[in-house]
Write a protein that binds this DNA or RNA. Structure first.
Length: 619
DNA sequence: TTAGGGTTAG
């Protein structure tokens, strides 16, 4: 319809169509392209710019468009003869805040003062907000202090400003001075505490809020998600519905991310059904969240289905899909998708994309392709290599036993290598039993955690150097380094069951143990021998077998076997890497009990079926 | 016609 109307404009009839043009400019369905066409036609009849109302409408349209900076150029070149009013400034400030332009903000701010709008609260609030989104808290504070009449919006913007660079003391002080804080003031504080990682303080404020709206619920849920408390996020999501708040697309994106982190496939599927029922538009946020949820729950097929159906994809969407394929063992497909991304002109690979691409190369064992992407493609796209990229590259070289080359890459890094990079090299040492290099790496790492000591210790154990095992054990004891306990979870009928290594606290522990003993007998019958090298310390063989038998994933799988129907896929999420023994055992379980078992470890997926694993024993 | 909430990697 708009297209037909546009065609009707002729030079002579612009005045005649002024109302139609203004209507189009104010319509939210007018696209940026149409807006530019209208502007171009108006330029052919400069007299049209004598209409102040039309000029302001054009500013309004540009401020709301995907190219807000056009508002400034239009104002500077075509509105010089007009006296700006409060609307003019309002729209220009909207454009400033969207484009986060400090320069424009300063310009408009000084004009508002010069033209006598300094005591206009509405406008100065907008100026204040612009400084806040530009990250200029000091300037924002100056505006705030110089405002003769402050209202709750002024306080809220200023609070938000302090919450943003992380100045919670200042935010809190101002919050306590706010004459009549509203739900927005409270929510801003919740978000502030969340952003500095203080979820407890955020929750405390949330509980004390006099009233809450959907945005406050969303803020608290995403606070949990972003601070890696997905279970609390899901609990709060239930509570929110119990209090009769209907989730919107924002809620759903956060909750899907929580499902992804915890591996809650059923809840994730329920949300998928819910958002279809509500006819939520699958925008890139929602689409990406869905893809990531399915991928992190180990169901790549459904992730691909969503990806294929999306109308609109941004780089996050592609990244989530590429990464999902890579971590689920579909390295080739991940790289194929990356090729498609390269020819899609609507997106551009970024640093996250290359994490996925290099991960695919490393998991798939594509040495040459990995080198090509790391040394050439990444740089072609102007991406500066991050430690994550180096870590993938070191991992890839390490797998091939090219430990010297891997070390060379680290020594020549343009940025400071962090523990993740050294740890990648350490993984290579483990695989190829290079004790000397491993010792050197551990001594050079700045922040060692228990996992690094455990790895070194296991390396000694695997070649029978029990004295050294004892030495490492003593270092850990002396320095008070605790081994991070393995923890695996499984979702059964919407309840998350967590098992810690050696844990006997589960109410059905006796049955689980019985099942594991039965398993032991069945495995012995097919010639299984426990790989006792991975047990951390030197204890006698029988004890070692006991310790191995109670690794957290075995407990979780045992529970899965007794609490789900035959042939049901068992899905486990683990906080650490899977050990060799558990890997062997899980392969056998998949064959003996005819079950598909999907284990998500700290880094990647293992899909076990018919006695084999998707990682091809290479992880 | 100004103020608070969302996705990917780590």
């Amino acid at each position: 319809m708009h297209h037909i109307q546009l065609k009707q404009f002729s030079l002579a009839s612009i005045q005649h169509h002024k109302q139609t043009i203004i209507h189009l400019l104010q319509s939210p369905s007018t696209t940026t392209k149409q807006l530019k066409q209208i502007h171009a036609q108006l330029l052919q009849s400069p007299s049209s710019f004598s209409s102040f109302f039309l000029c302001n409408s054009l500013l309004f349209a540009y401020a709301a468009s995907s190219t807000p900076t056009h508002a400034f150029s239009f104002f500077a070149t075509q509105m010089g003869h007009l006296h700006p009013n409060n609307f003019t400034f309002q729209f220009l400030l909207k454009a400033s805040s969207k484009s986060k332009s400090v320069f424009q903000t300063v310009q408009i701010h000084s004009m508002t003062l010069k033209l006598g709008f300094g005591s206009y609260t509405f406008l100065q609030n907008a100026v204040l907000h612009c400084y806040v989104v530009c990250g200029c808290v000091v300037d924002a504070r100056q505006v705030f202090d110089e405002m003769p009449h402050k209202d709750v919006v002024s306080f809220n913007s200023m609070i938000h400003g302090y919450c943003n660079s992380g100045e919670m003391d200042a935010a809190s002080r101002l919050f306590s001075q706010t004459p009549d804080p509203n739900v927005i003031s409270w929510t801003a504080m919740v978000v502030g505490y969340s952003s500095i990682g203080d979820v407890a303080a955020a929750r405390q404020l949330f509980d004390r809020m006099p009233d809450r709206d959907l945005v406050s619920w969303n803020a608290m849920i995403s606070s949990y998600v972003q601070n890696r408390h997905p279970i609390e996020a899901l609990n709060l999501f239930c509570q929110m519905q119990a209090e009769n708040f209907t989730p919107n697309p924002v809620t759903v994106s956060s909750v899907l991310s929580a499902c992804a982190n915890v591996g809650a496939l059923d809840t994730g599927k329920w949300i998928h059904v819910f958002l279809n029922k509500k006819h939520f538009r699958l925008d890139p946020f929602l689409g990406t969240a869905l893809i990531d949820m399915y991928a992190k729950c180990g169901v790549v097929e459904l992730a691909l289905e969503v990806f294929g159906r999306l109308q609109e994809r941004n780089s996050c969407t592609w990244n989530a899909m590429i990464n999902g394929l890579a971590t689920n063992g579909h390295a080739k497909q991940a790289l194929d998708l990356f090729s498609k991304m390269q020819v899609d002109r609507s997106v551009r690979p970024d640093e996250v994309t290359f994490v996925g691409v290099l991960l695919a190369c490393s998991h798939g064992g594509f040495l040459e392709e990995g080198k090509k992407h790391f040394y050439c493609t990444l740089r072609d796209y102007g991406v500066n290599p991050l430690v994550e990229h180096y870590a993938c590259m070191v991992d890839l070289l390490g797998r091939y036993g090219l430990l010297k080359e891997a070390e060379h890459v680290i020594r020549n890094m343009t940025i400071v290598p962090d523990v993740v990079v050294w740890r990648a090299l350490l993984g290579g040492c483990r695989l190829h039993k290079d004790v000397e290099l491993a010792e050197r790496v551990v001594s050079e790492m700045e922040a060692r955690d228990s996992g690094d000591y455990v790895l070194l210790s296991n390396l000694y154990a695997s070649i029978g150097r029990w004295d050294d095992v004892e030495k490492v054990r003593k270092i850990m004891k002396d320095q008070g380094i605790q081994k991070i306990p393995g923890c695996s979870s499984i979702v059964i009928e919407n309840t998350i069951h967590e098992f810690i290594s050696g844990d006997k606290s589960h109410p059905r522990y006796a049955e689980i143990n019985e099942k594991l003993e039965e398993l032991g007998r069945k495995m012995a019958a097919v010639g299984y021998l426990a790989e006792t090298g991975v047990v951390f310390y030197d204890i006698d063989e029988e004890e070692k077998e006991q310790a191995l038998g109670h690794h957290s994933e075995k407990l979780a799988i045992g529970f899965g076997l007794i609490s789900t129907a035959a042939a049901t896929t068992i899905r486990i999420v683990k906080n650490l890497r899977v050990c060799n023994d558990c890997h062997t055992v899980t392969k056998l379980i998949s064959k003996i009990y005819n079950r598909e078992i999907v284990v998500r470890d700290r880094v990647r997926f293992h899909h076990f079926k018919d006695g084999e694993c998707s990682c091809k024993d290479y992880w």
